[in-house]
Write a protein that binds this DNA or RNA. Sequence first.
DNA 1: CTGGCAGCCAAACGTATGTTTGAAACGTAT
DNA 2: ATACGTTTCAAACATACGTTTGGCTGCCAG
Lengths: 218, 218
Amino acid sequence: MAQAGTVDRILDTAEVLFAQKGFAETSLRAITSKAGVNLAAVNYHFGSKEALIQAVFERFLTPFSLALDAKLDEMEASGIPDTPENVLGIVFRLALGTHPDDPQRAAIFFRLSGQAYSQPQGHLREYLHTHYGAVFARLQLHLHQAVPGVPPMELFWRVQFSLGAVIFTLSGMQSLQSISKADFNMDASTADITKRLLPFLVGGIQAEVPDQPLQTER
Amino acid sequence: MAQAGTVDRILDTAEVLFAQKGFAETSLRAITSKAGVNLAAVNYHFGSKEALIQAVFERFLTPFSLALDAKLDEMEASGIPDTPENVLGIVFRLALGTHPDDPQRAAIFFRLSGQAYSQPQGHLREYLHTHYGAVFARLQLHLHQAVPGVPPMELFWRVQFSLGAVIFTLSGMQSLQSISKADFNMDASTADITKRLLPFLVGGIQAEVPDQPLQTER
DNA sequence: CTGGCAGCCAAACGTATGTTTGAAACGTAT
DNA sequence: ATACGTTTCAAACATACGTTTGGCTGCCAG
């Protein structure tokens, strides 16, 4: 990060600040001053703040989705069976491993995703869905092979639930760490949590689907 | 909502707008103009915007946590066994049922919680933990009785995962509905999703805890 | 040497925000 | 009817933001 060009310095700083404080709460002045570049540089190189946000995501997700695609190819070629553990394991190892130089990068990745999804008007969400929906669909297909007993519609929602568990937990890890430290006197790293996540998600995804509805009380 | 006092009109409007667009993105002018009150009314009655946000949460969570406490009392008294289904079922029925007059209210509730938790600096999160941590701990205790095989630390994280699945999904439901509608030509209500959530969470919470760690690739 | 051009910079612009002010309107008890 | 505390109001205030501007740099081709 030391002596990169202006564009990369902006992206590096923006991705950290966005993850830390959110999009609206992070001003261009905060980004540019911390990055050591001029305020006008963002609008010069990216056009607008919103374009900056998109650029940050693109730099994150494009390598990730490409790597995921490759891993799925590899999995299909080598005949590794479609089990929930295998499919989810690929995603997790990739999310933790795409940037081995910086272990905190994975946390930033999830935090950013959380910000993007909780962004209520959600044009970012649409952007993600149109640009990376293909890999997502492919992933879901493999999951369907893994748990054929779960109908596609049900599986769709269970993947959403899983996404929520992952993103929510890892994006809020800093605060949760302080809580878990106070209650259990124990530390928790990203890799540690991921290790705990896998069996939880597998258990949830391959749970039996019931027939009778849940009655609400009125 | 028709002819309430100024304070309630502000709270009613603010809670909807906060849920729709987030805290930072919702201006006091937007709230007051939609509520039909003067701009200065917020600072007069609440002191500041941040105090307004807290007031909105208090009005939501206090009745909820009281009702939850009562339900847990009731459960202990009548000797209903501690199973994951029963404990989680109580929470869900309560979240959906505390405001039977307005079915959309539950969605707002979860959306707001999502906003609060993804709020990165997290003083709201601290507020929630200090004010409603007791009920939360009680809930977790019952869950521990339900799945004694899962160590408390592991259970703590699984509850976080569950929270993430619930809040994330329901807080992003509007956008997800359009996706699921496009892919499956089917609609999804809050109650519908909750029905799908329960078996997923139960499956995740009572999953076996493994011994061997997940190796990351380096 | 010189022209052109992409990158960079300080400064300013317009706008939107949260907050404060001081007076008007209201309701109520004396 | 009058006085008083509360509530409402239009207006202004200070500040922070994203964006734009016009000129300054350094570099490379001609």
